[in-house]
Design a protein around this nucleic acid. Structure first.
Lengths: 334, 334
DNA sequence: CTGAAAGCGCTAACAG
DNA sequence: CTGTTAGCGCTTTCAG
C-alpha cells in the first residue's frame, strides 16, 4: 500500500503539500504540483478512502433499503438510485429486509455508525418508528415507494389516483363486474389503491361487491387459487384490477387455466408497469409509475440533504414529491 | 458522536479496556466489564466502523458488479450474495456497469482503495483484463455467471450442457426445425449455449440450418422483428430455443402476434428460469440455473478467500465450481 | 507557498 | 488484569 507519505518522500515535499495538490487546493506552486503529480503516477498512488472518510466525517456512501430486490419494482428503482449516486461520487449499499422490521433495525444499527451518509428506504412498514427516529436525530433519510406521512423527505406516486384511473378506464369501457386483487393490508399503498378502486366504482355508478375483492393470503402466488375459487363459486368478473403487476400475472394465468380468454372473456389490468409487463402475452394494460425516476429523484434529494446538513448542521424541512403516473392501455383489456 | 474515550471516562477506565470489552477479549475483570457495558448502554455508544476498518485494514464490505440489476437474472444472484454476506457480517455494494468496460474500470479504481475487501463480478467481458490484474495482485475476486477460464475463482453452470439438454429434449419430442435465438457473440456464455444447440442437433441427426439461427441486433427487443421476419420469409420453425428466458418472452410475443399458437404451432424454450418464467402464459419450459445458490456460493467463496488472505497473506489457488442445471418442462413445449 | 503538528476513533503491542 | 503509547492514512490549522 503506497501512502501519501511515500508520494511526499518521492516528490521531496511534505505530506500536507501532496494532500493539497490532490484536493486541488489552489494555493500551490505549479512546479511542486507537477512534481507531486509525477510521483503520484510513478507510484500509482490511490488515496485511502477510509482514512479520508474518517478524517472528513463522511463516507460518500448511501444505503438503499428494499423489501427484496427480487420484487420486480425494485431493480428499476435501484438502478435509478445507483446511476445518480455514482454520478455524484457516491457508492450505494444494498439492503434486503424481507419485510422484517427486526432485520431493518439491525441494518440501521450497523449503518448508523457514521459508516453511511444517508439512507433511502423503500421498505418502510407502519412499525418502522426507528426510521422516524433516525430522521429526528438529524440523519438524512428519504422514503420511497412506501410513504406514511409528510414528516420525512419522500418521493412517491398518488396510489389512490393510480387505482382510480385504472378502475375508471375499466368502467368507462363498459365493464360491470370489476374484481380487485388486494395486497397486504398493513401496507398503506395497497389500502390507497383499494380506496381508488372503491371511489371509481362509486363515481361510475357501480356498487362495490365485497365478494369480488380477493385478499392475498400467502404471497403473490396465492392469487392463483383465490382466482380459481372465485370462478368456481360462479362469481366470474368481467374485469380484474390487480393492485400490482406481478399479481396481475398470476391472475392472468389462473384465468387462462380456467379456459377464459383475455381480454375476450375478462379484462385484466395491473398497476406499476414493471418491465416484463410489456413482454408477456397479452401485454398488460397498467398504470405506470416512473420507477427509475423515483429512484433517481430519491438519490438526488438525499444527496442534497446530505450537503445541506454538512453546511448548516441540520436537515432541511421535509418535502414529499409526488410523481405523475400514466395509464397505459395494451392488450389485456377490451 | 460518542466515542470510546467518552465511554472510558464514564466507566473510569482506559480506552484500551473498553476496546477489550467490546471485542470480547477474555482477559478482563468481570466487574470492569460490567462497568464498561453500563457506560456503553448509558451513552448509547456505537463503535465507529470507519475507524475500526482503518486500523484493522479491512472494511467487511464486498462489492457485487453486474451488467444491470434490471436484467432479470441478477436480482436473484444479488439476493443470494446479500443474504450470505449479511449473515457473515459483511455489507454489499451494488455496481451496475451496463456492459461498459470503462465504467467497470472506474469502479475498480475506486474500490481498490482498500475500501472493499473483495469483489464478485458478474459482468466480466473478454476485455476485462483489469479484473485478471486485480486477482494477480492478490485481491480476492470471484467470477459469476460469466466465466472465462480457470485462473480466477468462479461459480457458474455448464452453459453448453444446458443448451444441449434443452435442444435434445426438443428433438426427442419430435421437433424437426428448431430455431435458435442467439445472444451477443462477444459473451462466451452465449457461444457456449450455441455450441450445445449445434451439438444436440448433430447427435439428433438434424442438420443445422443457419437461416434458423437469429442473431440479436439491438437488445433483447430486437428479437420481435427478427422473429417476425423469419416467419415472413416462410421459414417457420416448429420450435425455438432462446438463449435466455427474457429472449424467449419476446419470441413468444412475436409468435403470438403472427397468429401462431404456443405450443400448438411452435414450441418455445428458454434457458435460465428467471422468476417470471413460471408466471407467464403459457408457463415457459426452460433450463434452470440455480441463481440464488450461485450468488450465495460466490459470496461464501469470496469470504473464504478474504479470510485465507488475512491468514496467509496470499490468495488460495483458484477453483471454479459448476452448479447443476435442471430441465424444467412447463407448458410452452409440446 | 510550504512544513510541522495535531487528531479523526480505534486497536495492539508493551509494560507494569 | 489494565494503562500508556504508537499509529492506521488522511486533512487542516497554525506558523513561518
Amino acid at each position: 500500500m503506497v501512502s501519501l507519505k511515500d508520494v511526499a518522500e518521492r516528490a521531496g515535499v511534505s505530506a500536507s503539500t501532496v494532500s493539497r495538490v490532490l484536493s486541488n487546493k489552489p494555493v500551490v506552486n505549479v512546479n511542486t504540483r507537477i512534481r507531486v503529480m509525477d510521483a503520484v503516477r510513478l507510484l500509482d498512488y490511490r488515496p485511502n478512502e477510509l482514512a479520508k472518510s474518517l478524517k472528513l466525517g463522511r463516507s460518500n456512501t448511501i444505503a438503499l433499503m428494499v423489501p427484496s430486490i427480487q420484487n420486480l419494482i425494485f431493480p428499476s428503482i435501484a438502478r435509478g438510485v445507483e446511476d445518480t449516486a455514482r454520478k455524484a461520487g457516491y457508492t450505494v449499499i444494498l439492503c434486503n429486509t424481507d419485510e422484517d422490521v427486526e432485520e431493518e433495525k439491525r441494518y440501521i444499527t450497523r449503518l448508523r455508525t457514521r459508516f453511511i451518509d444517508g439512507l433511502i428506504v423503500a421498505s418502510m412498514m407502519p412499525g418502522s418508528d426507528h426510521i422516524r427516529k433516525l430522521w429526528q436525530e438529524g440523519f438524512p433519510v428519504v422514503l420511497t415507494s412506501r410513504i406514511y406521512d409528510d414528516t420525512i423527505d419522500a418521493v412517491g406516486i398518488d396510489n389512490e389516483g393510480a387505482a382510480f384511473d385504472a378502475t375508471q378506464y375499466l368502467v368507462r369501457s363498459g365493464h360491470k363486474r370489476i374484481a380487485f386483487a388486494m395486497g397486504r393490508e398493513e401496507i398503506p399503498l395497497y389500502m390507497d389503491r383499494y380506496k381508488g378502486y372503491v371511489r371509481a366504482l362509486a363515481e361510475g355508478g357501480l356498487s362495490l361487491d365485497e365478494q369480488l375483492v380477493i385478499h392475498e393470503t400467502s404471497g403473490t402466488g396465492s392469487f392463483y387459487y383465490l382466482m380459481r375459487n372465485l370462478l368456481k363459486k360462479g362469481l366470474q368478473p368481467d374485469a380484474v384490477l390487480a393492485s400490482s403487476d406481478p399479481k396481475a400475472f398470476v391472475v392472468m394465468r389462473a384465468l387462462h387455466d380456467a379456459g377464459l380468454k383475455i381480454p375476450g372473456d375478462v379484462s385484466v389490468m395491473g398497476i406499476d408497469n414493471v418491465e416484463t409487463s410489456a413482454q408477456i402475452e397479452p401485454p398488460l394494460s397498467t398504470v405506470a409509475q416512473p420507477l427509475y425516476e423515483i429512484g433517481a429523484l430519491a438519490a438526488t434529494k438525499l444527496i442534497r440533504q446530505i450537503h445541506h446538513k454538512e453546511k448548516t448542521g441540520k436537515l432541511a424541512p421535509p418535502q414529499v414529491d409526488i410523481l405523475k403516473t400514466d395509464l397505459i392501455i395494451r392488450k389485456s383489456t377490451r
